[in-house]
Write a protein that binds this DNA or RNA. Structure first.
Lengths: 143, 143
DNA sequence: TATTGTTATACTCTATAACTATA
DNA sequence: TATAGTTATAGAGTATAACAATA
């Protein structure tokens, strides 16, 4: 039987958030394994589906991902025939889902619904509206 | 004025958690910059302070950090004279705070208190007991 | 002058495999 | 056989700097 440490940080809000976030992201990542996509990739398909014609800089701003780091993400999804690029400018490309991308997006959406529902069942006794409001407040920060 | 995307994932619990966690960890990291320590290092000082004589494997288990990744963490804190190792076994070392480590631990504790208080002020209208309970439930997962 | 896409690069965090020595 | 510490390594994720083409 392994020794258990007295843990004075386990009750800190920041670490509770970190653990809860890690658990949910790991669960989502495992669930999305069924479509062969990572959470960030599934999210991009959903965002492009909701905003056909958007450009990758806009996606990066919405997701908090730097332009430089969007390049391999979009290139990967395009190479796998999930996304199409068509020039709008001389410098940017309108993104849209291919038929295969739309099919994947629908599956991702269903997987995310089931993923959320699984945790919602766990939170039956919790005011979810208040929980979401609290998380939004925290995310907005102290400043 | 930059175009704003319609964002159907911003309301998902997992992403709310991720953003809230990122904001709090960034704030804590910035605050701990005053002691020249990262959040994980401050946490280790607090855990060793509460559990003198513990070994690094136990810390790793408490923090969800693999043994291999504990090595440079403990080595760094020992090299900076925050931690002391004394052999208990032929294979493991009891960890304790040096005087310098205890001084840093106290400062870290104060910084973490202020950090938490800043966000608690933001959550004046929230049932924090219920918030913490919800986060614990999520962290424990669906299984 | 600001923005878009891009390359290159680096640093952190995390993960596994393999080894040693000890229990 | 299991555990503690270690090394090496690989993969994400994220950050900056710099550049070309375009607005």
């Amino acid at each position: 039987m392994p020794k258990e440490l007295h843990d004075p940080i386990a009750s800190r809000l920041g670490y509770l958030l970190r653990r809860a976030s890690a658990t949910m992201m790991a669960d989502l990542g495992e669930a999305l394994g069924a479509v062969g996509l990572r959470p960030v990739e599934g999210t991009i398909l959903i965002l492009v589906g909701a905003n056909p014609g958007c450009i990758q800089s806009e996606l990066g701003r919405a997701l908090g991902i730097k332009r430089a780091n969007m390049v391999p993400l979009i290139a990967g999804l395009t190479a796998q025939n999930y996304l199409e690029k068509s020039p709008v400018d001389g410098r940017s490309f309108a993104l849209s889902l291919t038929p295969r991308g739309e099919e994947a997006r629908a599956r991702v959406d269903g997987i995310m619904d089931a993923h959320e529902a699984g945790f919602a069942r766990l939170l039956a006794d919790v005011d979810q509206q208040q929980l979401r409001a609290a998380l939004s407040l925290i995310a907005s920060g102290r400043d």
